[in-house]
């Protein structure tokens, strides 16, 4: 598991400032994700979780601050080096963002087609492996995104994110819009991938059950900054918003449920 405070974090965000007009979203936000951990990002609506993700991805240029992934500063890289860095992580967006005119298999193959020159049968084989990896039935490969259920879309998006076997996964609300059974199956899938592929995962989520089940550490965005701690530590943080978040009616029930079945490792669900 994750070593304590390694010198070389997987993702390191320092002093990020983001402002839209007069609205300050991030006022010097720091975040550090250690290699091999599942890191959860939480925060109220409009607190800048998605903006933070976009900043890490380089889609949003911050007013100040630096983002480095695997020890390399994103803002200083150009051209081929930047492309290589972008292949070192996989991303899923909140609504899947599957390409609607391509089948699931073609969606998964797209990063491979762009990065490598491979014969069709190899592409098909690799796509099948990734599709099975995320627990989709192989016959989902030929379907178009519009033919998939919400849970299947999330899994297919995950398969595309894993197409190039990146060591780092960035997930934006992976369980939002799923029913509780599909959401908890997704949690198990994430734990399973994390264990078997030794992934580092950064995950924005609102789902308290997911946080309790999967996250080793949690970062809470409050007042444009991030307070991060181990799950145990963050739950006892005195900040009023964090108290409200983890000890409101929903927080309590999720916490109780986790303590009841703690330690039970289920195999990932198939969908």
């Amino acid at each position: 598991m994750a070593a304590t405070a390694p010198a070389d974090p997987a993702v390191s965000v320092r002093g990020i400032v983001n402002r839209f007009g007069t609205q300050v979203v991030h006022a010097g936000l720091d975040m550090e994700v250690r290699r091999g951990e599942i890191f959860g990002i939480v925060g109220g609506a409009g607190s800048g979780k998605s903006v933070l993700l976009r900043t890490i991805l380089g889609l949003q240029v911050p007013r100040a601050g630096t983002v480095s992934i695997g020890g390399r500063d994103l803002t200083e890289l150009r051209g081929a080096e930047l492309r290589a860095l972008k292949r070192s992580y996989g991303v899923t967006f909140q609504h899947g963002a599957l390409f609607s005119s391509l089948t699931v298999a073609e969606n998964v193959q797209l990063p491979l087609v762009e990065a490598c020159r491979l014969p069709d049968e190899v592409l098909a084989g690799l796509a099948e492996l990734k599709i099975r990896l995320v627990g989709l039935a192989p016959d989902a490969a030929g379907k178009y995104p519009a033919q998939l259920s919400g849970g299947m879309v999330k899994r297919a998006a995950l398969a595309r994110a894993l197409a190039l076997d990146p060591p780092l996964l960035l997930l934006d609300e992976p369980t939002s819009g799923l029913d509780p059974i599909a959401a908890s199956a997704f949690d198990e899938l994430l734990l399973y991938l994390h264990r078997s592929l030794r992934l580092t995962v950064v995950m924005i989520t609102h789902d308290l059950d997911t946080i309790y089940r999967t996250c080793a550490r949690v970062g809470v965005i409050v007042d444009g900054r991030m307070i991060s701690d181990s799950l145990e530590g963050i739950v006892h943080n005195p900040h009023p918003w964090i108290q409200e978040y983890f000890h409101g009616p929903r927080g309590r029930s999720a916490s109780e449920a986790t303590h009841q079945d703690a330690g039970v490792v289920r195999s990932p669900g198939r969908q």
């Binding site: 098909a124 099948e128 492996l129 099975r132 490969a141």
Partner: peptide
Amino acid sequence: EFAATLLAAGPAAAHEG
């Protein structure tokens, strides 16, 4: 071993087209 287990489980992919 892991990849082989994944590919062995469940039905084989139907090769459409």
